[in-house]
Amino acid sequence: MMAAAFFSMPRITRLAWHVWRRNLEVFIRTWKVNFFPPFVEAFLYLLAIGVGLGTYVKEINGIPYVNFIAPSILAIAVMNSAFFECTYGSYVRMYYQKAFDAMIATPLSIEDVIAGELLWGATKSVMYVVIMLGVLSLFGVVALPLALLVIPVAFLGGLLFAALAMCFTAITPSIDALNYPSFLFITPMSLFSGTFFPLTLLPAAFQYIALALLPLTHIVAIFRMLSLPAVSWTLLLHLGWLLSGTAMLCVVSINLMRRRLII
């Protein structure tokens, strides 16, 4: 595959929404299993890190520690829900259930199918963030109504992680090999993206690497500006990074999947 082929613009039609809807229907049918985890996760984080660790770390740069980590909890939820949906979830649908093969025998193209999967991954991020935002609001650790703006950003961030995940799904030799990106990329990112301590504590070189390569850094930064609130013009830079990163990864992931499934 020529390098240019990775970036060729895929033709996506509105039929992609049918794939999204198929996943939504399955999700709704098992809603109890699906809505419970984010609910509990928000509590656990708040308790263990906010209250537990917060007893010692009272505040960071004048911000109460619980308020400091509240946006990080949301950002990590965005990352995890989309990433795991479009790695393990999509892989199971593709490889074990042969669902994509069945779909491309209909007017759906492989591009439509993958686009639908990505949209679904992003939607899942949004749903998780909405639930967790509710829990965090009850504890009064996020500033409403500005914090509501994390919801649209969650869609963008979710789309980014869905596309990133789909790239791994497209090249993984087996479902077990998906553990590599999960443990070597996602787990460290949830710790070193300015989530539980400020990025500025890290060596300068690492700060640049985090800003250049770790998408979570930008989501955490935006979420924190919106939830504290402490909005500054740099929000636009983070947003710009997310927008371009998402666009690029969406295109690449669809082309990679096309190569895996067709050629």
Binding site: H18, R22, V26, Q97, K98, D101, A102, P107, L108
Partner: peptide, 19 residues
Amino acid sequence: NLDPDFTCEGNLVTYARYF
């Protein structure tokens, strides 16, 4: 390659939607 997440009817209904 039937969809294991749906019933018989659900499989046909979902598939019809793709058309």
